[in-house]
């Protein structure tokens, strides 16, 4: 598998997990926050679908989704749901950042668009959660 296909396959597994995580997140939120969670989930689904098509038409292997994913902490209320939403966006952003150096052209543009979008969404979730600061210096950078 090419480096690029590997990075995209890794991004796909992150998208699967993100979509799964928005289940428990969504049920703990209400009103505009629940709506924002639904929009976030839809964005992750759209990228998942595009990745599945791209990887399978490229002849690469498509990693399968799993039945469930381990949450980093129990999601029991609005506060923990928002915290998880922040983590989901920041972690998914990191996978797209990792795809940048091994992609070129339109593929790089798409990876960057995902990194930027998820970083911005993480900032919105930080604001909802009342976390400060609202931003991190290097979105998507490991560590």
């Amino acid at each position: 598998m090419s480096e690029s296909a590997e990075a995209l396959a890794a991004a796909l597994t992150a998208e699967y997990a993100a979509i799964w995580a928005y289940g428990p997140v969504g049920v703990r939120l209400s009103g505009t926050e629940r709506k924002a969670a639904a929009e976030a989930e839809a964005a992750h689904r759209a990228r998942r679908d595009a990745l599945v098509v791209q990887l399978s038409t490229g002849g690469g292997s498509v990693p399968p989704d799993r039945a469930g994913y381990a949450l980093p902490f129990p999601v029991t209320d609005r506060a923990s749901a928002l915290r998880l939403a922040v983590q989901v966006e920041e972690r998914t952003a990191a996978f797209w950042r990792a795809a940048l150096p091994v992609s070129t052209g339109a593929e790089r543009d798409r990876a960057l668009a995902a990194l930027v979008e998820y970083a911005v969404r993480a900032t919105r979730w930080r604001r909802s959660a009342g976390l400060t600061p609202l931003t991190v210096p290097f979105p998507g950078r490991p560590g």
Binding site: R97, A98, L100, L115, A119, T123, P133, L134, P137, G140
Partner: peptide, 18 residues
């Protein structure tokens, strides 16, 4: 250089939001 530049672009976008 592209990963650092990606983070810079993303950070500036989050500043706009903040």
């Amino acid at each position: 250089r592209v990963a650092l530049l990606g983070s810079v672009a993303a950070a500036r976008a989050t500043h706009l939001e903040a």
